[in-house]
Design a protein around this nucleic acid. Structure first.
Lengths: 122, 122
DNA sequence: CGGCATCCGGGCCGATACTG
DNA sequence: CAGTATCGGCCCGGATGCCG
């Protein structure tokens, strides 16, 4: 995805592009989080990738990085005003996605029921 | 991005994941389009990728594929109800992205002005 | 016109190890 | 605690060529 963008969606996608960014957005939505704290909220993410994504989001102006000069080191990440706006803009998409999940689950149940009918005692 | 999803956003992202899907969505929003017609609306996309993305979107239930049995071949693609709903859910994100583009352009102008001040006649 | 098969290159992501 | 460095694999997407 290269700039300049062909439409606003591209510009937004570009910012949330990355396997974890949306999850990071949600993790930070409830308030400031420390690095390790955020990592714990995202099971499976590596430190390298989390740091990467946070840096990119900071560069994109949706995350604020606050460094406390102390030992042990402490760094807090929080959403900027624009980050919160982005999260709000994501809400309808979230609703749409939840509907899709519900549909997928319904289909899965049908499939399971059909399979059970074909081989009830296999 | 693997199922099951951790949140609705993931499920939605999964559907629009792919360099061109959002653009395809927009291209089809104004009505049914033929394959070549759609391709022309997306400068730079290859036929393989366009076909791929259309198939995936069809599998995800957001695009309808209508084949006319005639020569020369004619295939029309259109959005399903869910596809239109997805597009609607994307609108706030589009608005957010447009704001971001405006901000980026403003920054670019400042940079250009600063550069001009440093080397006015270079 | 519409679409598939094959090859290939780059980027993202993950695992591991190391540092202040 | 909060990163950085390096390596490797996988998948996406681009180019090309062929088929109904």
């Amino acid at each position: 995805m290269q700039r300049p963008y062909q439409c606003g969606i591209d510009a937004a996608i570009d910012v949330i592009d990355g396997k974890w960014k949306v999850l990071v957005l949600w993790a930070l939505d409830s308030g400031a989080r420390r690095f390790g704290e955020t990592k714990r909220l995202l099971p499976g993410i590596s430190e390298k990738v989390l740091a990467q994504q946070l840096r990119e989001m900071e560069a994109d102006g949706i995350v604020h990085r606050e460094v406390y000069d102390q030992v042990p080191p402490k760094v807090e990440y929080s959403l900027t005003e624009r980050g919160r706006a982005l999260n709000a803009a994501l809400a309808p998409l979230n609703a749409w996605g939840k509907e899709r999940i519900a549909l997928l689950e319904a289909e899965a149940e049908e499939t399971a029921a059909a399979a059970a009918a074909v081989a009830p005692a296999a």
